[in-house]
């Protein structure tokens, strides 16, 4: 399973491609795809958004869905989704809508 991650051009904030091709700041709102066709669809939308100067560095991220919650497989992506582990008061985790790190 994969989702599409990127950084918003204007402020660099980590975003994910959600339903209706809207970029969301909350990974739980990301659109999960399960096959090659879905991945290609995400990448196409990401490329269009890149060309429109909405986001940069769009890339597919491997995830699993645990109890209905999206959880990236790599720690790097889990930290990106939550914020620095050393500052629980900073980043998306401060808004209590991020993935659990461990």
């Amino acid at each position: 399973m994969k989702i599409l991650a990127a950084n918003r051009l204007t402020d660099g904030v980590a975003v994910w491609l959600g339903e209706d091709d809207v970029w969301v700041e909350d990974i739980s709102q990301a659109r999960v795809v399960r096959d090659k066709e879905g991945e290609e669809s995400l990448l196409r939308t990401g490329e269009v958004a890149f060309q429109r100067n909405e986001v940069v560095d769009a890339e597919l991220v491997d995830v699993e869905v645990v109890d209905g919650a999206i959880r990236p497989l790599r720690l790097r992506e889990r930290i990106r989704a939550a914020g620095p582990t050393i500052h629980p008061e900073i980043g998306k985790q401060a808004l209590k809508r991020a993935v659990t790190l461990v």
Partner: peptide, 15 residues
């Protein structure tokens, strides 16, 4: 390359 020459990187959460 222009932003890098001015010290601006893109990191995990932000610039």
């Amino acid at each position: 390359p222009l932003r890098l020459m001015n010290g601006v990187y893109l990191q995990l959460h932000s610039y």
